[in-house]
Design a protein around this nucleic acid. Structure first.
Lengths: 341, 341
DNA sequence: ATGAAAGCGCTAACAT
DNA sequence: ATGTTAGCGCTTTCAT
């Protein structure tokens, strides 16, 4: 363990600890000769500074925590990448936690982040009910912004996609390809993106005159395996829909896999769409039609909201109302749907 | 900001701060009636504890930092998942950092982790030379284990794959499918897994009597795009190899994509192999033959090594020699190579 | 078993 | 512009 403290530097430079602190943090003007000496001595001694002590004293850590349901999901990996970049540009540090789909692990992470005095938390809760308590407890103490998935907790902002609009865009595209009947594969209603997507699917399908095949809304989870299994069942029936709409790209990739296994042509026999626009959608066969989420824009908005809340927290001012920001996705048409006629 | 301190709890429970501390941390026997009272009061007040203050006093944080070259690479996402699980089981917290392929960002993260007094660092350096200084500086202060990629820094352990053996396994498999000529697509020699893999490729190809086509070792980076580009060039030539061996699955997926674009059959016209066994290798067409890295085992070994180093650091004992642990991969044969004849 | 006191390393008043 | 003092919240001697 490094044991060189600010006091060591100060002593070696022949100044007081406060002066050394001021030089090294640039918090106040200081004689340029003294400054140079302190810097030199600090370098020579290999002084690194103790962030823990600094955080304790300043009561802020210049770090924000982020908790995602699963880092194995490329969509969240992309979100993390964007947030990390945005934070880094602001000179802040990201503490990333992977809940591995478990509300318990998620709760432990949230608690740990609060204990570590992060200045804010970005969370995509993994369960629409089981995550509420932990998110609520965290939000009571530190600014929390929910990203993508969300739970009903007061005082937290949310940034995500406009699900209703997203489903409309997909379904309109499918209507354009002359699809008449559709099915929707999504995750259990235990996480929050889902409920909105199901509603968006049903309402827009009805509005556009699309038939939802019987038992055409299938609840699994956001995984390739789930998409495969659901597609197996759906495709084994007589009333195959013209298009299978999926609530994320992983599910859609599972559907493509199942179609290939059964020799069902995509998009000839059935069209398939995803949501998220993960990179791999470009490398499956056929390449995947999907909705791109504006992850970079999302990250920027998260930073903005977090920034506002953090300054509120610092000022001790009354927090403003919660913001809900539903951004529009962008349709990315590839090979898994037919040309618009 | 939560402002309930241990002193508040102690006062409300009518005990001294030391006693409250002992109750809440269980560090020493305490009267059971007193203990109960303190616990109850702590609950009522919603006491959470200040990890920063605790860390400053105890001089350990029960957290380890991890820095990966890119969280967008599913292989590293998998590694992170395994490490996170292993740490969580030990009651420790993972601070994950994404270098986004930049040695500068990586250096900033390493510095930040050291400043935050993490108990140890797991790093997969993104550059074989540009990463040396930052890793070295970190290793001088806190226990460092390198994972997968590595740079030459004294006093650090390393856990990874036996590259030489890995290439032998791939090439032996290809010999078994009657391949006679091969090419190797890998990343620039600017990162460390690469040099060993190139050597492993050349030596084993020679030993097995395989012909390396002229300019058959192509240096790009670990990405789909790089694989695509390299394959374009390679396939445009007259002397197409029987098999294209790739240094990771992303490159291989790029090769598959390029083959499909040019109407070249895999494995009929050319065989393709990857390394890592990322999930998506099962969902490309054809499915990808690859080498699986034992990520769970790797995570366990990292934990073990880190544990040893941390206790050394705590005891102030002389650190033991650096360990290098090269684990064997497992061949996963799928559709992108032919049946063994 | 409990309390009093000291101090981890730093920065922010408050001096001068 | 610099030094002195105090204290962030916690754990840990050292007492009793």
């Amino acid at each position: 363990m490094n044991t060189i403290t600010l006091a060591d530097v100060a002593r070696a430079a022949g100044v007081s600890p406060s002066t050394a602190s001021r030089v090294l943090s640039g918090s106040r003007p200081v004689g340029s000769d003294v400054a140079a000496r302190v810097h030199r001595v600090a370098d020579e001694l290999g002084y690194t500074g103790n962030g823990v002590a600094r955080a304790l004293r300043k009561r802020r850590t210049d770090s924000v925590g982020m908790v995602v349901p699963s880092i194995l999901n490329p969509f969240f990996a992309g979100l993390v990448d964007s947030i990390e970049a945005a934070l880094h540009d602001s000179g802040m540090q990201l503490l990333l936690c992977d809940a591995r789909q478990s509300p318990d692990v998620e709760a432990a992470h949230l608690r740990a982040l609060v204990e570590r005095n992060v200045d804010g938390i970005v969370v995509s809760p993994c369960h629409s009910t089981a995550s509420i308590d932990a998110v609520g407890r965290a939000a009571a103490i530190v600014p929390v912004v929910q990203l993508d998935r969300w739970v009903d907790v007061q005082g937290t902002d949310w940034v995500g996609m406009d699900d209703h609009r997203a489903l409309r865009m997909v379904l309109e595209h499918l209507v354009g390809t002359s699809a008449r009947s559709v099915a929707f594969l999504t995750s259990e209603l235990t996480n929050s993106s889902t409920a909105d997507r199901v509603r968006g699917f049903r309402e827009n399908a009805a509005a556009l005159g699309l038939t939802v095949v019987p038992d055409g809304v299938v609840l699994g989870d956001f995984s390739v395996e789930s998409g495969q299994a659901a597609a197996e069942t759906l495709l084994a029936r007589g009333d195959r829909p013209d298009a299978i709409v999926c609530a994320d790209d992983l599910i859609a990739i599972g559907v493509l896999s199942a179609c290939r296994a059964r020799g069902i042509g995509v998009p000839r026999d059935v069209q398939v769409t995803g949501i998220d626009d993960i990179d791999f959608g470009r490398y499956v066969v056929p390449t995947l039609t999907t909705l791109a989420q504006p992850t970079v824009r999302m990250a920027a908005e998260v930073m903005r909201l977090l920034g506002e809340r953090v300054s509120f927290a610092v000022n001790g001012a009354a927090p403003r109302d919660a913001t809900r920001l539903a951004l529009s996705p962008r349709l990315v048409v590839r090979e898994s749907t037919r040309a618009v006629s």
